[in-house]
Simulated assay, not measured.
Amino acid sequence: MCIGCSAPLVRLADAGPAAIGFWRLFFALGPSLVWAYAEHRSSVRRARLIGAAALLPSRRQVLLAMLAGLCFGGDLIVFHKGLAQTSTANALLLGNLAVVFVFTFGWLILRERPTRGLIVALVMALTGTAIIIGSSAWHANGAGVRPVSVIGDLLCVAAALFYAGYMLFTRAVRRAGRGEAVPLGGGMVSVIASATGASLCLGWAVTTGETLIPQSLQGLLAVIGLGLIAHAAGQGLATFALGRLPAGVISLVLLLQIVVGVSLAALLFGELPSLAVFVGGLLVVAGVANARPGGPG
């Protein structure tokens, strides 16, 4: 639900696409550092109880966390560019095609075979997604509130690929590898990934000559909200969950952000969903419910 606030807040921000990504990650670093410090204190206490030294992150863990950050930074840059050229519904739906990529790559790379219940949930969620995309394509031929474009849609599909990479790298680093006693904590993963992604976004923004500083109080509050609500809270909770649940389950549950984002877009910008979008949204929610841990299959 927190991540679902992302697209509306991006629309309210008045800086360049990559610059918005930088500020989002920059403002999320503070809470991430607090989280990482709390994890470190806890690990030190446990180490003292058993008479061992506190463990430091391995090179593999740091590298995987940095790769996750690069993927997330790429996702923000491409998604923000796509969002500027299409409707909120299109951007959220196509951006959430990451669920397909996560299932495919998770099966091939992480060997996480989907259960029968997850396959049913996936079919329901993607059926709802197809209904909403079809409705958006239909309205693109008329006078919609927000114009859509093929380029914008393709950019959001590319963003889905980046986000799938982020989820899979995060899932990998949240598992203990060979020779590692414990997985890297979610707080430290968030710090490393956020710092890496912020560096990528800032470098891209400077290189392409984007507007770096928000031009209004509304824009400033929007990027602060992106950092604290969408990233520190939303991505932080997702990172925490990726250490305890299969990537496929997380990717399906994250489809709830579509419902949240489209609802906020309707309230804030008048992008009212049609009956078809409503029906598709119900199917997405049904898929999310069916994907819960301990569900069918």
Rank of each mutant, 00 (worst) to 15 (best):
L9F: 10
V10C: 08
R11I: 05
R11S: 09
L12V: 07
L12C: 05
A13T: 13
A18I: 08
G21Y: 09
G21K: 02
W23N: 01
W23F: 13
L25R: 10
L25T: 04
A36Y: 03
Y37V: 15
A38E: 09
E39I: 03
E39Y: 02
H40R: 12
S43G: 12
V44P: 09
R45K: 11
A47E: 00
A52S: 14
L55F: 13
S58M: 07
R59M: 01
V62M: 09
V62A: 00
L67G: 06
A68K: 05
A68F: 08
G69S: 11
G69D: 01
D75K: 01
L76P: 01
F79K: 00
G82R: 07
G82C: 09
L83G: 05
Q85I: 09
Q85V: 06
S87T: 15
S87I: 06
T88P: 03
A91E: 13
L92P: 03
G95E: 02
N96Q: 13
N96I: 04
A98C: 12
T104L: 15
T104I: 14
F105R: 13
G106S: 13
I109Q: 01
I109A: 10
L110T: 09
R111W: 07
R113Q: 14
P114C: 15
P114L: 11
L118N: 10
I119Q: 10
V120P: 09
L122D: 02
L122C: 13
L122M: 02
A125K: 05
T129G: 14
A130Y: 11
I131S: 00
I131C: 10
I133K: 06
S136N: 15
H139Q: 12
G142H: 07
G142W: 00
G142F: 02
G142T: 08
A143S: 14
A143W: 11
V145T: 07
V148R: 02
V150I: 15
I151G: 08
L154E: 12
A158M: 05
Y163M: 11
L168W: 06
F169N: 13
A172N: 09
A172I: 13
V173F: 03
R174Q: 00
R174M: 13
R175G: 08
R175S: 15
G177I: 03
G177S: 04
R178T: 13
G179Y: 10
G179P: 08
V182Y: 05
S190F: 14
V191F: 03
I192P: 03
A193V: 05
T196S: 11
S199P: 05
C201R: 00
W204P: 05
A205F: 02
L212D: 07
I213V: 15
I213F: 15
Q215W: 10
G219W: 00
L220S: 06
L220P: 02
L221P: 10
V223H: 00
I224M: 00
L226A: 04
L226G: 04
L226E: 08
I229Q: 09
A232R: 04
A232N: 05
G234R: 11
Q235I: 04
A238D: 03
P246R: 00
G248Y: 03
V249K: 12
V249Q: 15
S251V: 00
L252T: 02
L256S: 15
V262S: 06
S263Q: 08
S263D: 12
F269W: 02
L272M: 11
A276P: 02
V277G: 14
V277R: 05
V277T: 14
F278I: 12
L282C: 15
L283K: 14
